[in-house]
Nucleic acid binder design. Structure first.
Lengths: 237, 237
DNA sequence: TGTATTTTATTTGTCGACAGGTGGGCGGCG
DNA sequence: CGCCGCCCACCTGTCGACAAATAAAATACA
């Protein structure tokens, strides 16, 4: 009777909830490059910022380290993981493969609820493109493709794709300033085609579109990198 | 001068080393099914067993949870993750794809040190087969394929393959009792063929052999499951 | 006797503090 | 004046303890 379950979501919600907040907050800041690659992470500083002890902070950091978002220098400090430009070819390769595999599987296994989720993300992406919200574009585009992966019903692919796409978010964020206005609209159209092929359960066409879409993005990133080698080399340290 | 760097590897080696020991020990016990899927994990018990505080234990558990080896029931207990038989098809699919992709990339990118590592693991595998050491077979077979993935120079594929293979180790361990003596020898031969194709830089042949090898293993596991549904259903709870 | 409620016990999540290690600053020596 | 080694301060890794939360046990009631 005297319990009010709401109204206190602000600071400390409940036991164990704080860790998730720290984890997600830092994760987003790393992906959006609010925390620059290579910059040190001070546990005590975070402890003060989130108003909690170092123990839950540490827990969140361990999780981030496990998925490679941060790197721990033993007994020294932990830093935000660098963007590995040496492995850029591997990134493109994995990205293309996951586009293809998830698109194929989604065409075979999707159901109505998957479709609804995919359409919802596509709508958000479209809105972000129309309003010129670049950060939103990057994020909603990622969500769109993750939704397709989920519809494919293979947790291994979904997890890998998530990881690859999040790495891609960092890279895109790094080059977003040279964003060409035509490309995002092109992506919206390509997404629509991918949805249509999926609805038609057309595996071959889904595969073809996935390759095309992947090539488009790879070309885009490649052109950004070759056009803007200055900022790349300054970050690659 | 007064420092003896060796001789104390036994208990507490150095700051931060204990966490890794707990992590790897538990990881191996989970993979080898010494810890049954679904069995609870008591932090205080582990604390006593490894003679350390609960804090580093907790850290190891977080890492294991991050890669899905264990599942934490909030505020309650944490249990060893179940083997997900529903996703068995997804497992076979991912396994086959990773066999193929890593074999293809290895044929393109391997160097002499990769080859040495691969041959070394293959030798260990052969020895395990000849001595009938089933646990050793499963482990060295996994290492052999990971070495091929490493030679492929793609961290995304390597990481996913590792995860898939470790899931496979649990499944194989579950059914090892019905191991047929002919198959392991067949695997040794197939491994040799894969090495030869890699040395020849023959991508097509490497791909073909990978498919064959994957099919072999999938068939094997499938036959075990259909032949022995009793133990499967008893674990699937 | 069966069910609902309170109590209790165990286990997790969090905290503050201490100890070890690493890097940088300071001083000595060539 | 520059290089090397020592000392100090800061940060991480670990510890023991406390508090919340949940499941089980015990009790009361219908």
């Amino acid at each position: 009777m005297g319990k009010e379950p709401s109204e206190r979501e602000v600071s400390q919600v409940k036991r164990g909830g704080g860790v998730a907040r720290v984890y997600e907050t830092l994760r987003n800041e790393i992906i959006d490059l609010k925390l620059a690659p290579g910059s040190p992470i001070d546990e005590t500083e975070l402890s003060a910022r989130f108003a909690m002890s170092r123990t839950p902070i540490r827990e969140a950091l361990v999780r981030l380290a496990a998925e490679g978002m941060i790197t721990t220098l033993t007994n020294r400090t932990t830093i935000v993981s660098n963007i590995d430009f040496v492995q850029l070819g591997a990134f493109f390769d994995a990205l293309t493969l996951m586009y293809r595999v998830t698109a194929r599987l989604a065409a075979q296994h999707y159901d109505e609820s998957d479709l609804a989720a995919i359409r919802s993300h596509q709508a958000s992406f479209t809105k972000a493109v129309e309003s010129g919200d670049v950060l939103g574009m990057i994020a909603t585009n990622r969500d769109f493709h993750v939704a397709i992966a989920v519809a494919g019903r293979n947790k291994y692919y979904t997890d890998l794709f998530r990881r690859v796409l999040d790495d891609g978010r960092r890279i895109l964020r790094l080059y977003y300033h040279s964003y060409d206005d035509n490309l995002p609209r092109q992506y919206v159209i390509e997404h629509e085609h991918m949805i249509s092929a999926m609805i038609a359960r057309d595996v071959q066409e889904s595969d073809r579109l996935a390759i095309e879409h992947a090539d488009q993005i790879v070309r885009q990133i490649r052109s950004y990198i070759s056009a803007d080698s200055r900022s790349a080399s300054s970050i690659a340290l």
